[in-house]
């Protein structure tokens, strides 16, 4: 008998994107709709939680409608509703979570709460099948983590940032260089035009650690700018961006390569919004290109930033494993990936 196809409707509202998607069998994108709020947060220089929540409740039905329309399906065709239950901004999460509950109740469908970072990792499965064990480098505005997976649905954090996330450091350095929000793409663009001339530190922490620290690097950039100002010298923004990026990318690449070898993984996945960074993509592709037996997978940029396709993809695995949430599911701003 042929195995029945599994259709999962995914919802993501953990930060400033209102998103929904339909995924078939955890691997095929049937529809993927993202409504970004970035324009309305720009004037504040960052995401304002209350304003993000307000936009989600305004946009959510239009996003759902477009998703079903593009998929050419209805909720009768779905096997479950998957939604980001954390981590993220609590007010923003609650819009997606409560909408998901209403749909699940109305159509008597299973409800599955998904960890946002698990979603980012599973974005890779929309491109190519995952093979275990694998190591995932998760880099975003809120996260910098090395996550080891021995099988589907199993997540072990072997290293994480002790202070700023990589994405946060990018935004702060961008502000120092008077670049507009969000700063990451601007730094990446400038870095491509400059040279690593400022010899900024590589912060590797103690021997053997897989943890990260970016606040010292961020301070080094601020001090460089400050000292130049005091001496009346001009900063070369391209070179400073290139130097900063080189430091971040060196450390991320070195730790990822070491972790991949030590844990003897078959695959390395890049996940999270900073995975859109061209410098990081190139460096990882380079490093793993020279290592036999370890594949590097980097999803296309549209799947690196927040979306609901990745939530539905991760939700499919949970669905197959029989994991379910009740109508009393809550949003969890600090949800732990090892325990969700």
């Amino acid at each position: 008998m042929m195995k029945k196809d599994i259709f999962i409707f995914g919802i993501e509202t953990s930060c400033d994107e209102t998103a929904a998607a339909v995924i078939k069998n955890g691997t095929d994108i049937i529809a993927n709709v993202v409504s970004s709020q970035i324009e309305s947060h720009k004037r504040f220089g960052g995401v304002v939680p209350e304003i993000a929540s307000r936009h989600h409740v305004e946009q959510i039905i239009a996003v759902f409608e477009e998703t079903l329309e593009r998929a050419g399906l209805t909720f009768q065709d779905m096997d479950a509703i998957a939604v980001t239950k954390g981590p993220g901004l609590v007010g923003a999460l609650l819009v997606g979570v409560n909408a998901a509950k209403a749909i699940a109740f109305a159509h008597d469908l299973p409800l599955i709460g998904v960890h946002h970072i698990a979603g980012h990792i599973y974005a890779n499965r929309l491109v190519q099948e995952m093979s275990f064990p694998l190591m995932s480098l998760v880099v975003s505005g809120g996260h910098t983590e090395l996550v080891y997976m021995k099988e589907h649905g199993s997540f072990e954090v072997i290293g994480e940032t002790r202070d700023d996330a990589a994405g946060e450091a990018y935004d702060k350095v961008a502000r120092t260089l008077s670049l507009p929000y969000p700063g990451g793409p601007h730094i990446d663009r400038l870095a491509a035009e400059g040279q690593d001339t400022y010899s900024l530190p590589r912060i590797r922490l103690e021997e053997g650690s897989y943890d990260f620290s970016f606040s010292g690097l961020k301070s080094a950039v601020i001090n460089t700018v400050h000292n130049a100002e005091q001496r009346g010298e001009e900063i070369n923004p391209e070179n400073l961006a290139a130097s900063f990026q080189a430091s971040v990318v060196d450390v991320l690449t070195e730790k990822t390569v070491r972790a991949a070898k030590e844990y003897d993984v078959k695959q390395v996945l890049l996940a999270g919004g900073v995975a859109a960074n061209k410098g990081l993509r190139a460096s990882l592709e380079n490093a793993f290109g020279e290592i036999e037996n370890i594949d590097i997978m980097i999803p296309p940029i549209s799947l690196c930033t927040d979306n609901a396709a990745m939530i539905a993809a991760a939700g499919t695995i949970l669905f197959e494993q029989g994991k379910r949430d009740g109508l009393d599911m809550n949003g969890h701003p600090g949800l732990d990936i090892e325990e969700f």
């Binding site: 209350e50 929540s53 307000r54 409740v57 959510i60 039905i61 759902f64 409608e65 909720f75 007010g91 609650l94 819009v95 409560n98 909408a99 509950k101 209403a102 749909i103 109740f105 109305a106 159509h107």
Partner: peptide, 19 residues
């Protein structure tokens, strides 16, 4: 309450839309 209002409105409009 901002959050309270949003929870009620989100549930109500999603139910009405999908039903």
């Amino acid at each position: 309450s901002y959050t309270g209002v949003r929870i009620g409105v989100t549930i109500a409009k999603t139910l009405a839309w999908t039903l």
